[in-house]
Nucleic acid binder design. Structure first.
Length: 288
DNA sequence: CTTAACGCCTGAAGGC
DNA sequence: TGCCTTCAGGCGTTAA
C-alpha cells in the first residue's frame, strides 16, 4: 500500500531508469486504470513521446514528456511499476509468469516498464500539452513543504470534531500519509489517535509535524515499507517495516515504554494501532 | 459546511 | 478438503 515514502521510492527508481526514454508503444491489457481515455487512444497519445521528468505530488506520480503532455498515475492499493531492461526477463520462467500486468510501455531501446495492479484501483490520467493538472489543487501541502507549518495545520484542525487519526488521512489537510505512517507518527508524537482535531494544542501540533517529518524521512531512507504488495521498480523490498513501532503490532509489547501492549481499534472502517500508555487519552502526557 | 457509509477489486487468512 | 466471511485501505461518490 504505497504512501509517500513508497511513492517517493518508486519515483526515484523511475528517474534513474526511464527518463529520456522514448515510448515505442503501449500495450493495455485492462482498460480500467485509464480513467479519461481508452487503450487505443492512450497508445496513440503517448506513442513516440520522450519522458523528460518524473516527480511526486503527494501520492501521485507525474510523468512529464518533452511535448509537455503529462501522465498522472496513482498506485492506490496494489499498483506497482516494474522496470525490465529486456522483456524476456519477465517471462523467462514459464511457471512463474507475471500476473496482473494491466499495461506495459515498450521503449525504443527495447526496455519495458510494466504496470502491475492486483486490485485495479490504480489510475492513469492523461493531460494534453498546456492543460493544467487538476491534482495540483486537489490535495493539501506536502509534509516537507514550507507551507506545512503549525499555523497551517492548526487552522485546518480548528472546529474539526473528527479524530486526529482520521483527519491526518485526509489528503486535503496533508498529502502523502496513509494508515501506516499516520499510526506511526501519532505514536512518535505521543498523541492519542481518538483525540478530536480541535482539541490538539499548539505544542501537540508542532510535535506532530516534527514526528510526521521524521518518520517519513527515515522511511524514505530505508526505501519504504513492504508489508504485502509494495516493492521497488526492480522488485526489491522496502526495509522500513523493521522500524515500525505500532502498525500491525497488535498484542506485542510497546518497545517505547516496555510496559503496555499495542492495541488495535477501528476508526472510519480502518485499523488504528496505538500504545495506550505512550498515547493516553489523557492528553497531558506526551513522549519526549 | 462536516460527517458517515459504501463501492471499487483480488487474494490471503481464519472459522467451521 | 472446501466453502463462506472478513480483512487489507485509498479515494471518489453519495447521502444525511
Amino acid at each position: 500500500m504505497p504512501e509517500l515514502p513508497e511513492v517517493e521510492t518508486v519515483v526515484r527508481g523511475l528517474k534513474k531508469t526511464v527518463v529520456d526514454k522514448q515510448i515505442k508503444k503501449i500495450d493495455v491489457f485492462h482498460p480500467k486504470p485509464l480513467v479519461n481515455t481508452n487503450p487505443v487512444s492512450f497508445n496513440r497519445f503517448l506513442q513516440n513521446e520522450v519522458i523528460r521528468d518524473i516527480r511526486r505530488w503527494g501520492k501521485y506520480i507525474i510523468f512529464e514528456f518533452k511535448s509537455q503532455k503529462h501522465l498522472v498515475v496513482h498506485l492506490r492499493m496494489t499498483g506497482k511499476f516494474i522496470f525490465l531492461p529486456d522483456l524476456t526477463l519477465g517471462k523467462s520462467n514459464q511457471s512463474n509468469v507475471r500476473k496482473h500486468i494491466r499495461l506495459h510501455m515498450q521503449f525504443k531501446d527495447k526496455s519495458y516498464l510494466l504496470y502491475q495492479d492486483i486490485r485495479i484501483f490504480g489510475t492513469f490520467k492523461t493531460y494534453a500539452t498546456g492543460e493544467p493538472l487538476s491534482e495540483y489543487h486537489k490535495i493539501g501541502p506536502d509534509p516537507f513543504s514550507s507551507q506545512f507549518t503549525p499555523e497551517w495545520l492548526s487552522e485546518k484542525l480548528r472546529n474539526r470534531h473528527l479524530a486526529i487519526k482520521v483527519l491526518l488521512l485526509d489528503q486535503k489537510i496533508i498529502s502523502g500519509l496513509g494508515n501506516i505512517y499516520v499510526c506511526e507518527a501519532l505514536h512518535k508524537a505521543g498523541i492519542n489517535p481518538f483525540l478530536p482535531g480541535y482539541c490538539l494544542n499548539k505544542y501537540q501540533v508542532a510535535l506532530l509535524i516534527s514526528a510526521i517529518r521524521e518518520i517519513l524521512k527515515q522511511a524514505i531512507e530505508y526505501g519504504g515499507t513492504t508489508i504485502s504488495d509494495f516493492s521497488h521498480i526492480d522488485e526489491h523490498s522496502g526495509q522500513f517495516q523493521q522500524w515500525l513501532k505500532v502498525y500491525q503490532k497488535k498484542g506485542q509489547l510497546c518497545t517505547h515504554c516496555n510496559h503496555a501492549i499495542i492495541v488495535s481499534e477501528k476508526q472510519a472502517q480502518r485499523s488504528t494501532f496505538y500504545c495506550p500508555t505512550c498515547q493516553p487519552a489523557d492528553k497531558q502526557t506526551v513522549n519526549a
